[in-house]
């Protein structure tokens, strides 16, 4: 090897160095550290030194009602939000795609706009909308004599959070799906029309099969993201009423940063990670088997 080549390699690693330092310090190390922590009993408030307990934290979580309740709340949220967002986003993307070329920019921007609002602002706003007494929604419903306990009753609270989340997050999937629709060659539709295929047939035989990879990507990303829901419930319902909307990330947050049980919190976050991984793998498997 020539000297110049050695110096190139040296400079190359120099270019990588700043990023690698940050990557090791704030991603790789925390990953290993967190896994290690999950095997220790470490309760900062009790002043006791961390104690190795093997899988004790995991066993505790799996045997505890609060963990299952939080996992249940998370699953309920995921089960409601993913179909709502994906279906809504697909419907709007299809409508936008049916407009003449180069139009619809305003509609797209308007529907995307809520995604750039901070969750604390969005949360405050919707908490006010949902408020039973002074709330906007109940003020609008008052002439009908209806008063909805949006966030004060168990059977409504999670649905209200889902409603708000549809508004807040629909824009991203919509834009991705629209880009996917635009990639489908126009000729396919023309050929199908000449053959006398109606709108329904064209949708099920051209649009849906060709959109499938993008649609799958959107669904998987949405599931992964939805499992990590936190801000909405933290701001709007605070996990209530009766912990019916306390999702896993909120429970982990409270365990680690309010009760300072760091080992237990780490173990629960790994459990959440496992749940997410299992769901993503299952999803890809299912799709592959059908093909």
């Amino acid at each position: 090897m020539t000297r110049a080549k050695y110096s190139n390699i040296f400079y190359g690693y120099l270019f990588l160095l700043p990023y690698l330092i940050l990557f090791c310090a704030f991603i790789l190390l925390p990953l290993i550290y967190g896994l290690g922590l999950s095997l220790f009993q470490w309760e900062v408030l009790s002043n006791a030194p961390p104690r190795f307990i093997g899988l004790g934290n995991y066993r505790e979580a799996l045997g505890e009602t609060y963990f299952w309740k939080a996992l249940g709340a998370t699953l309920r949220f995921v089960a409601m939000i993913v179909p709502s967002v994906v279906f809504g986003a697909l419907l709007i993307a299809l409508a936008l795609n049916a407009l003449p070329e180069k139009s619809g920019g305003f509609f797209k921007a308007a529907i995307f706009a809520p995604t750039i609002i901070s969750i604390s602002v969005a949360g405050i706003l919707w908490r006010w909308f949902f408020s039973a007494e002074f709330g906007l929604f109940n003020a609008w419903l008052a002439p009908l004599g209806v008063k909805v306990p949006w966030i004060t009753e168990n059977r409504w609270a999670m649905k209200s959070v889902v409603l708000m989340t549809v508004w807040w997050t629909l824009g991203g999937p919509m834009v991705v799906l629209l880009a996917g629709l635009k990639q489908i060659p126009e000729q396919y539709y023309e050929a199908a029309s000449i053959d006398g295929a109606g709108a329904m047939r064209r949708f099920f035989h051209i649009t849906l099969p060709l959109l499938k990879p993008v649609l799958l990507f959107v669904i998987v990303m949405n599931i992964i993201g939805s499992f990590q829901v936190f801000g909405q419930t933290f701001m709007i319902t605070r996990g209530g009423p009766e912990l019916s909307t306390r999702v896993l990330v909120q429970y982990i947050y409270e365990t680690a940063f309010a009760s300072y049980r760091l080992g237990y919190g780490s173990a629960m976050s790994w459990l959440l990670f496992i749940v997410i991984a299992v769901f993503s793998i299952l999803q890809f498997r299912l799709v592959r088997e059908r093909e």
Partner: peptide, 14 residues
């Protein structure tokens, strides 16, 4: 692919 919340506690300690 790693969800951010898994890094939350260790990054806090670092």
């Amino acid at each position: 692919m790693i969800p951010g919340q898994i890094l939350m506690i260790p990054v806090y300690l670092i």
